[in-house]
Design a protein around this nucleic acid. Structure first.
Lengths: 225, 225
DNA sequence: CCAAAAAGTAATCGATTTGTAATAAAAATG
DNA sequence: CATTTTTATTACAAATCGATTACTTTTTGG
């Protein structure tokens, strides 16, 4: 099934944007454009399948935009950085290498299209492999983000689901609150370890009898068994 | 099966740490950072899957850190050295202390990611490389932090577990109370050597017959045999 | 803009862990 | 062998940690 992928182009060079837009639209992509970092962050990033992001822009740089998308918005949308000439020595200051791929200017449209397709294809592949962790009657579908017990869907919030996934993925292993914070809250918000407790409590309540499978141990953290 | 590997970055250049962090997190790794050798050694090294270690740091150098990890802590976690020097002698020193790889600055992020993946992939084959110390029916799982005797889990407190791990890792070797304090209590609290005694006593009681495997010798400390 | 849901905060209480001190036992010393 | 030092054990107290609740703030979705 073919789907029209949505791509956001972020670049302050208007001409370049238009060339990209024209060519990518010919390839069947749906294009949206932001002419600055600020403008990009006003878009609903979640809606895009891929972002073409210029690194060097006045004001909010591409690096900042990428950082915000990852750390604050927590969106894993693929990002391709567009950057001026590659200088390997520039890594320290130029931020010219990024998350999913980078393309250095000047580039050929063919190259851009090829890389976009490669990344979207890769994403497709991952999406198709369903990843389900099962424990007795309880099933945690990591991809669909759905938890069921005996076929019945359990309504978990995002945080609850993330915690359950993390523990289920590491069955039998104690994971400290600190580690849970690092992995789920990342480092963008400062919350205390009490938050973990509270969410564990909520989670336990929701999964009923399975709640007792989440063991808490003083000094060690939590463990699913 | 995809797993989130934990990587510890040790470098006193904050900018570089952040760039590495950003890029490695994009790759799905869980990142922790230490801005000095001292800080690094306060981390629970056992918990990481790989360590990126800067050689040139004020105070405790990268070599010292690596040396401590290998010789004292007896942890076989892969280590990649980051260094400005491309001096052959340095390379030799690095491999003497058990470095798994060597990357000289300036480097491209792609290179770092590639090397990390290569090493982790290789490590996958070796599987859980002696994360479990066994002595007859007693097993100490350093990663899961669980101790079992004949399959039955022994409920150890954190300190008890740390002491048992330390002694078990250095089977047959006497470790002084002072050394135990340094390694387990670190330098955050000032407690007397009596604390070690007390915890040893508690530990001995909990591991039953194996308690007599922990030998105490006046003037030497404790030894597991 | 409002209502509902989600997530964060604070406070409490109980449990667990750890530290302290006292004492007994063992080992070292001369 | 007597004395001093070191170590083991015990009981108790202090500190820390963790679960839960109620409440507030933030986010989400219409």
């Amino acid at each position: 099934m073919e789907e029209n992928h949505r791509i956001l182009i972020v670049d302050d060079e208007k001409d370049l944007c238009e060339i990209l837009q024209f060519n990518l639209e010919s390839e069947g992509f749906v294009i949206d454009i932001a002419y600055s970092g600020e403008e990009a962050l006003k878009k609903d990033i979640q809606d895009y399948d891929l972002i073409l992001l210029d690194v060097m822009m006045e004001g909010v740089s591409g690096y900042k935009v990428a950082n915000t998308i990852r750390k604050q918005l927590k969106i894993t949308v693929p990002i391709i950085f567009l950057t001026a000439k590659i200088d390997e020595n520039d890594v320290l200051t130029g931020f010219n290498v990024g998350a999913d791929d980078y393309i250095s200017k000047p580039f050929s449209i063919k190259e851009v299209v090829a890389r976009i397709k490669a990344i979207l294809k890769r994403g497709q592949g991952i999406a198709n492999e369903s990843n389900v962790i099962a424990h007795q009657e309880m099933k945690v579908d990591l991809k669909k983000k759905i938890t069921t017990i005996g076929g019945e869907t359990i309504n978990l919030t995002r945080k609850e689901f993330e915690i359950l996934s993390l523990l289920a993925k590491n069955k039998g292993q104690y994971i400290s609150r600190d580690e849970i914070l690092k992995r789920i809250w990342k480092d963008d918000v400062i919350v205390t370890e009490r938050n973990v407790d509270v969410n564990i409590a909520r989670l336990r309540k929701k999964i009923g009898d399975y709640g007792s499978n989440i063991k808490g141990k003083s000094g060690y953290g939590y463990c699913f068994q």
